[in-house]
């Protein structure tokens, strides 16, 4: 930088102009971000507030309760809500464990091994995934019904449905494994490890981010599934999950008694899941940005 630039008045003016422009654009951005944050968070504030409303249980058009209280939360116990909650929780835990195993098996194999039907298999699963998922509901329901895993007994049925085809969701994990250099596997094989030992002793320990990501997404899935849970529980309250159950509270015949309880139930469901997600957020982000986009 020559001396001229530092002391030349026109240069100083130019740099100050740039700084000012920068500051203005930054301020605009901050304003936009603040507005966005408010908009994004408003619904959640509203639902929390409305859950504390005691004076009425129907859907009123205002947010702040006139009378505050925990009634809605307490009344949850008088309904099937906790049954739904337990159902969903059990499903989520079991699915989280089993689905992770299946997905990791599938994605590791497709990433590391080269066998004859590999490409064909991947194309086949791609095509299979183009079918709308709920098309299979009808027949699965009838078969599960014969096995006694529907309606009140929907939990095992749902677990089976979720994990059985979970192998098709290998993309993100495979993308991750593809970034692990194959020479690591090769070095271990030369060192005397079988391929099973390579997976268990070398690859998995260093795949912590993607394992956590897979467990997290597998756990969160059942909390939000509506279609399958609705179909397989087939209007039997004892077999519903929280999504189906809470949605039923918003139907025309129930909403007047249940609206505020819906809010309370929603908060109860949201809090643990959200906290879990925020704690593991960085793994989720790593997984999404790392693997999801490789396609």
């Amino acid at each position: 930088m020559s001396k001229k630039n530092d002391y030349d008045p026109s240069e100083i003016q130019k740099r100050m102009g740039m700084k000012a422009k920068n500051r203005i654009s930054n301020t605009v951005i901050y304003v936009v971000l603040v507005i966005m944050s408010i908009v994004w968070l408003i619904p959640f504030f509203c639902i929390v507030f409305q859950s504390f409303r005691v004076e009425s249980t129907w859907m009123a058009g205002y947010v702040f309760p006139q009378k505050w209280g925990f009634d809605n939360y307490i009344n949850l116990a008088k309904t099937d809500f906790w049954k739904w909650y337990t159902n969903t929780f059990i499903i989520a835990v079991v699915v989280a464990a089993l689905q992770t195993v299946i997905v990791l098996c599938m994605s590791y194999t497709l990433s590391r091994f080269r066998f004859k039907i590999r490409k064909g298999l991947m194309k086949f699963m791609l095509v299979l995934g183009l079918f709308p998922g709920m098309l299979t509901m009808i027949i699965l329901y009838r078969v599960l019904k014969d096995l006694g895993m529907t309606q009140a007994n929907a939990v095992p049925g749902l677990i089976l449905v979720y994990i059985a085809s979970s192998g098709m969701g290998y993309y993100v994990s495979k993308g991750f494994f593809d970034t692990v250099p194959k020479t690591l596997d090769e070095a271990a094989r030369i060192d005397g490890a079988t391929r099973a030992q390579v997976l268990w002793k070398i690859i998995l320990p260093m795949a912590k981010p993607i394992v956590i990501y897979t467990i997290l997404t597998a756990f969160m899935g059942p909390w939000g599934d509506f279609v399958f849970a609705r179909y397989i529980s087939m209007n039997t309250s004892a077999g519903m999950n929280v999504a189906v159950g809470l949605q039923s509270w918003l139907s025309l015949d129930q909403i007047n008694n249940r609206y505020t309880m819906f809010c309370a139930g929603g908060v109860v469901v949201a809090i643990p899941v959200t906290i879990l997600f925020l704690c593991l957020q960085k793994y989720y982000v790593e997984g999404v940005t790392g693997g999801a986009v490789k396609g």
Binding site: A187, I190, A193, I202, M206
Partner: peptide, 20 residues
């Protein structure tokens, strides 16, 4: 024969050290 049965040792260009 699999690599492990060939009694060989190998050093790779990118070292291939087990990171964990």
């Amino acid at each position: 024969l699999q690599p492990k049965d060939r009694h060989i040792a190998m050093v790779f260009q990118n070292y291939a050290l087990y990171p964990h």
